[in-house]
Write a protein that binds this DNA or RNA. Sequence first.
RNA 1: UGAGCAGAUCGGGUGGUCGCGACAGGAUCUUCGAAAGAGGCCUGUUGAGGAAAGUCCGGGCUUCGUAGGGCAGGGUGCUGGGUAACGCCCAGUGAGGGAGACCUUAAGGCUAGUGCCACAGAGAGAUACCGCCGUAGCCGCUUGAAAGCGGAUGCGGUAAGGGUGCAAAGGUGCGGUAAGAGCGCACCAGCAGUCAGGUGACUGACUGGCUCGGUAAACCCCACCCGAAGCAAGACCGAAUAGGGGAGGAAUGAAGCUGCCCGCUGACCUCCCGGGUAGGUCGCAUCAGGCAUCGGGUAACCGAUGUCGCAGAUAAAUGACCACCUCGCGAUGUUUUCGUAUCGUAUGACAGAACCCGGCUUACAGAUCUGCUCAGCUG
RNA 2: UGGGGAAUCGUCUAAUGGUAGGACUGCAGACUCUGGAUCUGCCUGUGAGGGUUCGAAUCCUUCUUCCCCAA
Length: 138
Amino acid sequence: MSTQGRDRHERDASWLFLPQRKEHHLRRNKEFQTVYRQGRFFASPDLVLYCLPQEDAQKSRIGYSVARKAGSAVTRNRVKRRMRELVRHHAGKLPSSGYDFVLLARQAAVDKSFQVLETTYTTLISRFLHWCNQARRH
RNA sequence: UGAGCAGAUCGGGUGGUCGCGACAGGAUCUUCGAAAGAGGCCUGUUGAGGAAAGUCCGGGCUUCGUAGGGCAGGGUGCUGGGUAACGCCCAGUGAGGGAGACCUUAAGGCUAGUGCCACAGAGAGAUACCGCCGUAGCCGCUUGAAAGCGGAUGCGGUAAGGGUGCAAAGGUGCGGUAAGAGCGCACCAGCAGUCAGGUGACUGACUGGCUCGGUAAACCCCACCCGAAGCAAGACCGAAUAGGGGAGGAAUGAAGCUGCCCGCUGACCUCCCGGGUAGGUCGCAUCAGGCAUCGGGUAACCGAUGUCGCAGAUAAAUGACCACCUCGCGAUGUUUUCGUAUCGUAUGACAGAACCCGGCUUACAGAUCUGCUCAGCUG
RNA sequence: UGGGGAAUCGUCUAAUGGUAGGACUGCAGACUCUGGAUCUGCCUGUGAGGGUUCGAAUCCUUCUUCCCCAA
């Protein structure tokens, strides 16, 4: 990478993958449905990570989902905020382009603390990266 | 000190690191752009509730409809007031509950009409089953005869007693009578009228004839109120694809209805127009606003003055981590107990704004304040 | 977010305010060498609280749960 490019990279934050920002969120119900239907998933008792490769996408996007059965509005919001915090903390581990993700919380995730969710999330991500490498080899 | 009643307030605090939404400003570094500007960047400010909930009422606002009135349908239902309005609030009245502070109350009209009151019971707008009493003839007993006693039957009186039932035609007592009955009297309850007080619901006094079941959260009657739908309302911009309208060319017109003529439909290309989907922008937060003081009012509330500016998302912004403090809770140690030490714990209640307000209802760990009642003890 | 509707045995459904009925299922018995079919009997219910009424599945009210529509 040239010095010019690095300057540009440092100053322009739009190049970075900041998944807490709005433009990296999945917004439309249709997009969620396509990810569920055509994507691959990695599951644990607490969380499920769906992913779908998008070849022409400049930025990866991620959506969060908590079922209505999981609890009241307060608990659902809390879980969603924790998931968003997880993604922000481990932003560098996900590819910054070419994928749509959906992170779905199961009912067991309601009672879990942030640290427990963090460990399960990291294992999910490592499994996802392992799958990526396998796919690239083929 | 204990038990309780009513009302009001709060719903952890301080600080730090990283991060999110909105608004304002800055710089002109960078991306897009012809520019204006937008995004990124930097700085600052600000960011959930008492119920934000349920969606049970009422209003604003928007679109549609509408001359006016009525019917239908729905709602409310003691009186007076408050309010933008309400099924809400305040004050009062009646009824019920509590020892009391106080609480509860859909509480107009069955004397406008209709319906219903199962089972039981003789009878549930009407009654005589068992009874009680009178009377008529008959039978039996007794007797010299009459009278008397008993029995069944017919006719009549009665609503005392029995029984049924949630409820049986005012209740209790005395008189009265063949037996009874408000038939008469006293008290009580109810009804009607007159007078007095009150704006009124109603209350009090007197008089009267003595009386006429319950049910309207049954139909209904009476009084008052109500147009419908909802911010995903509505307004504006508007891609792709398909389709619509117009003009011109093709055109001295392809093809079809049809063998011919008229007539009708009308292939392909270019330009223009409007509707409208995806999507986007606005609507979108300055208010029937909060707080303080003063004045009016018993109060709800109203008026005046001053002051404050207090969320605005749209897969939906408040989170993660750390330190300390305070109250509570739990565990452990010590102690007869009071207590005290250490550790853990804000996962330590209910719960997340979605167009905006006024109420109601429901959920809620814990803490605080004010007034009042009852009981016990002490002075 | 807004609007609309429903709740009756394990399931599907009836029931003017007056004993909650029927079908299927389940259990027991009879019949049969055994099973099925058939017959007989039994079990099991008004979503929760409060009110009106002599009496509520039903009327009124407050909650709970579920479903549908608008996208």
